[in-house]
Design a protein around this nucleic acid. Structure first.
Lengths: 252, 252
DNA sequence: TCGGCTATTATGTATAGACAAATTAACCGA
DNA sequence: TCGGTTAATTTGTCTATACATAATAGCCGA
């Protein structure tokens, strides 16, 4: 009836849409344990009556909860509160240049080595492609306020990014340049702890055999590997931090 | 118009819904660079005409893209392709018991120490609460196939989880027990590399000063800290892996 | 009792239309 | 020319309805 604005009389301040109200209400019932995992959520037509709105509105709320993984929906069977999921956390790994600038520190980088070569067996392994073609191998050192921040060892697949061959990487480091130039579709991270070898120790200015955080990343465009990179941070100076909520990337 | 099922005649095999078709088509145009960041997406009524469907269907596709962060929508202004976002990766950190069992290995744990005490200043710092009340301090060692897998040092805030006081942790380790019993609303991770001290070396069966991956996690229920935990893994044996796509928790 | 047919239920998708809200653009008077 | 009012555009939300689809429940005959 009349857009359900009858509610607005009793609740003068309700600037949030109906479907979100419903969504949060249901979410609260699940989070509070009022509806335990496995229990049944009332069917749409029932909620429609309860909340006094159309089925589409209820559906929008329920679909969002389903996409967020809070409930599971099956035709004819109904909707059920999902079992507690595994913990998923959103780890924010910024582009290094942006990361340093965001901390309010001065950024600088230097190309240590640069070599274009035919793909070796090791290169192919690390890029996870079949050998053949050429790669660009780079080593870069990044500074924050003139202190060594991270060492970057990178392989770029020239079959996918031929433009890198001519790029001098004077203004932007390879990672930033890639992000700006090449669209990527998926990627993979591996995070490990390891001891600094002589090279890393020298480049980062830390004692040999000190703890380092190594992040390896592969980036793909469809089936083609764009790049492989290994970022080595001083373990005592750098840490990855992430904030998150249950249900992953959830809701408002 | 008969539901646009005229298409079904020309395309006999199209099992995916219309709004997804549109969504993917638009997504492809963005990913391919045909629509560069900042460029304008045609307004809904135009897409509605192009795709020969209702505005609601177009809206569903566009809203999904907006939620995924691929486009930005503003009333009257229109929809625009979003600027490249920072990389966000979904890191899957399982419950330890589940993590080991998922690898097909035998799981066992032992409580090394257990102490209930008044909250010390250090406890309060680590839980990030104001001092006062009591805590339960636990050290646990987890085994995978009878090999030390990770050492867990935990503080539980008994003001929030009084039930832990009576819990013997015989069947489930504290982390698993907490996940099953206490609903949490948000959390924070810190990942660091560090060297094994004598205690960790002994407990994990690794050389002193070898590299370890330390994961610290604080978990809250609303404003109240439930628990703080530090998980120390052997750095050479353990690694965090994550797969992800641009736009975070994207789309089908 | 078993196997298969049918009816029912609940969700999935789609349509057409309506009004609200937020901006932007255009206009117009002082 | 400036400043404010008005109109137009675009997205946001909502309704009411319709048909499709999947899966269950129940029935019925052999």
């Amino acid at each position: 009836m009349a857009k359900g604005k009858a509610d607005t009389v009793s609740e003068p301040a309700s600037p949030l849409p109906r479907y979100l109200e419903i969504q949060r209400d249901l979410q609260a019932r699940i989070a509070s344990g009022q509806w335990v995992p496995g229990s049944r959520v009332p069917p749409e037509h029932e909620l429609q009556a309860q909340y006094h709105c159309s089925r589409m509105t209820v559906n929008k709320a329920l679909s969002a909860l389903a996409k967020a993984g809070l409930i599971i929906r099956r035709r004819r069977s109904g909707s059920f509160v999902a079992m507690p999921r595994s913990q998923e956390t959103i780890l924010n790994i910024q582009d290094i240049k942006a990361e340093i600038l965001a901390k309010g520190k001065a950024y600088r980088f230097e190309i240590l080595t640069r070599q274009e070569r035919a793909m070796t067996t090791d290169d192919a392994l690390q890029l996870r492609v079949t050998p053949g073609g050429r790669v660009l191998a780079l080593s870069v050192r990044h500074f924050a306020n003139e202190h060594p921040f991270v060492v970057e060892d990178r392989l770029m697949n020239l079959a996918v990014v031929p433009a890198a061959r001519e790029e001098p990487f004077l203004v932007s480091p390879p990672g930033t340049w890639l992000l700006d130039v090449v669209p990527w579709t998926n990627a993979e991270h591996v995070i490990q702890a390891e001891l600094a070898d002589q090279r890393i120790a020298t480049l980062l200015g830390v004692p040999k055999k000190s703890a380092c955080l190594a992040i390896e990343r592969r980036t793909w465009q469809g089936d083609a590997t764009i790049t492989w990179v290994r970022l080595t941070y001083p373990g005592d100076r750098h840490q990855l931090t992430s904030h998150f909520r249950p249900g992953g990337p959830l809701i408002s």
